Every structure is written in structure tokens, then in C-alpha cells.
Simulated scan of single mutants.
Amino acid sequence: MTDRTQQLPTFESRVLAAFDTLAPAEQRIARFFIDQKQAVLLNSAAQIAQLAGTSDATVVRTARALGFESLSTLRAALLAELTGMPSPGTRMERTLAETGGHAGDALRHVMGIHDKALESLRHEQFAVSFERCIDILVGAPRRHVFGIGPSGAIADYASLQFNRIGLPTNALSASGIALADRLLWIGKGDAVLIMAYAPLYREVEILLEHAAQQDAPVILISDDLGPLVADKVAEILPVPRGNADHLAMHGGTMVLIEAMIVALAAKNKDAAIDSLDQLSTLRGSLDKAWAKRGTRKRK
């Protein structure tokens, strides 16, 4: 195991260096610490134990056996490594090392990663938090969806779809000083949906401060930023984005956003359908070919 250890990041090296000294139950938890880093960061000892099929005492004991004073100390070391931000090229290189050069292998690898992400959305605790998020979003006068980089495209998509079902929404998908103009859109009591990841970017920091000034509740979608801002957000929806330090994958986040669209529409079905009918009418006005498709017939 020595050769492999030398090639791995510090946290994994530390775990693997002590691996052979652990009891079998502790080895299972140690492997969980390596393979499910986001879950380790975002869950309590009891929740980690439930996910790993063991006891919370075993989780804490394993952390200490690995040389950490506590589970919190282990989390701090893990978070410090995750926020080291390997370059996109390094992330891709690590991903390709696992998939190889065959397209079929890449397909199976990515499907497996998304299966894990979707499994996290099936947990009962996640469903309860999701319900609270929907209530926040539907009850606000306006919604604002933040994301930059790849998440910016998702923020634009979520904003478009929320507007289509009659929920006024703005996309906060700009970065740098261009974001300032969009922050002005946030009014008292609005809701803010953030897709962001460690490290804590200046844009996210300022957005959280401004949302607090406007008494606008914040919902965070993230796999690693939660511990840094937990006291500044109303809800956290932890969605894995693939293996740590590998290519970030957003399939789970897209599924979550589309679940939000359906859940929000269900909260006010008639208004959602009326808004979509109006969309069809406007399309028909702009292009007569659309008019042939008609709008929903009222009974």
C-alpha cells in the first residue's frame, strides 16, 4: 500500500497509512472517509454511521484511530484539502485515470457517479429539507438563483423555468463587479437559491451579506461549502458532484432543480398552467406555426 499512498493527497495518505492497524469495522469507516468525503463533511457521526451501516461510536473511534483528536478535527483536515482547489486539468487527469480511454468505460463510470448522487437525494432527511426549501421559494415575492461558471448556466435554466410557471425569478449568474447590478434586484423577504462550492468566493460572501440585510432566506446547494456558511443559510441541500478532486459533474444538481420546478408548480397548479398557456399564446403571436399547437383546453 506504500506506493499508492505516496501518490495520494495528504488526507488519503494519512488514512491509508493507518489502514492496516484498524479493526475490520474501522477499516470500513476509513474507506467511507475516503470514498464519501462530501458525506463526511455534511453529516453528523450518527448520520455517517447510518450511511455506512455501523454505529456512531465506531465512526468516532475510527477518527481517533487515524490520529485525529475528534471527528470535527478530521473534518477540518478534509475541508482544508478539498479547498486546495486542484486545477481543472488535474481534475480531468484524475478522472481519466479511472475511466481509461474507452468510451463505454467513460459512460459506465459517469453513470455510476450520478447513481451515487441520486441516491443521496432519496434519503428521508433530504426530502424533509427539500420540502422546507419549496415552501421558502413559493412563499417569497421573488426568487434569485445564483451560480457562476458551469453553475451559471444552471442558474439561468432554473430562472427561466421558474418564470415559466409564474414565479418571478432572476438569475444571479454574473461574477465580479457585474454581479453588483443584479444584487440590487434582491428585495425584502425575497428568497435566494445559491449553487456554490468551496472555497468561499467573494461573490458568495457578498451575496450572503446582502441577503441577510434584505431578510432574504438563503437555500444552499453544495457538496462542500455548507460547513463554512451554515450559520448564514436557512437550508442546505447537499448534492455530490462526483469524486473529490476529480471532474465536477452536475447531473445530480440538474435533477434537483427539475424536481424543484415540478414541486413549485404543484404548489400552485392553476397559476402554473395559466402561465404556461400564456407562454404558448405569446409564442403563437410571434410565430404562427406555434399557434397551430394551441393552448390547453379548459373544461
Rank of each mutant, 00 (worst) to 15 (best):
R4A: 09
R4L: 11
Q7P: 00
L8R: 10
F11W: 02
F11N: 02
V15W: 00
A18R: 13
F19D: 00
T21H: 09
T21C: 01
P24M: 05
P24I: 11
A25M: 11
I29D: 00
R31V: 04
F32P: 00
F32M: 01
D35S: 11
N43W: 03
N43I: 00
N43D: 08
Q50T: 11
G53K: 08
A57P: 00
T58L: 01
R61L: 00
T62D: 01
S72K: 02
A76R: 06
A76S: 06
A76F: 01
A76G: 03
A80E: 10
E81F: 01
E81G: 02
P86R: 02
P86T: 02
G89T: 08
G89P: 00
G89Y: 06
E93L: 12
A97H: 02
G100N: 07
G101A: 09
A103R: 13
G104H: 12
D105F: 05
H109T: 07
H109G: 02
G112V: 07
D115A: 15
K116D: 15
A117V: 02
L118F: 11
E119C: 09
S120V: 04
A127Y: 08
S129C: 07
R132K: 14
I134G: 09
D135H: 13
I136P: 03
R142M: 12
R142E: 14
R142W: 08
H144P: 04
V145M: 09
I148G: 05
G149L: 01
P150F: 04
S151V: 02
G152P: 08
A153K: 04
I154L: 15
A155V: 09
F162P: 06
R164P: 03
A171M: 06
S173M: 02
S175Q: 11
G176H: 07
L179T: 08
D181G: 12
D181V: 06
I186Q: 07
I186C: 04
G187W: 03
I194E: 04
I194V: 15
M195I: 14
A196I: 04
A196K: 03
Y197H: 12
Y197Q: 14
Y197T: 13
A198H: 06
P199D: 09
I206A: 11
L208H: 11
A212Q: 15
Q213P: 02
D215P: 02
P217Y: 03
P217D: 05
I219W: 05
I221N: 05
I221W: 03
D223E: 14
D224F: 00
I236G: 09
R241G: 00
R241S: 04
D245K: 11
D245R: 11
H246D: 07
L247G: 01
M249A: 08
H250V: 07
M254G: 04
M260I: 15
M260D: 05
I261R: 12
I261M: 12
A266T: 13
N268S: 14
A272E: 10
A272L: 09
I273F: 12
L276R: 14
S280W: 04
S280N: 11
T281S: 13
W290G: 10
A291Q: 14
A291M: 10
K292P: 00
K292L: 14
R296N: 10
R296Q: 10
R298T: 13
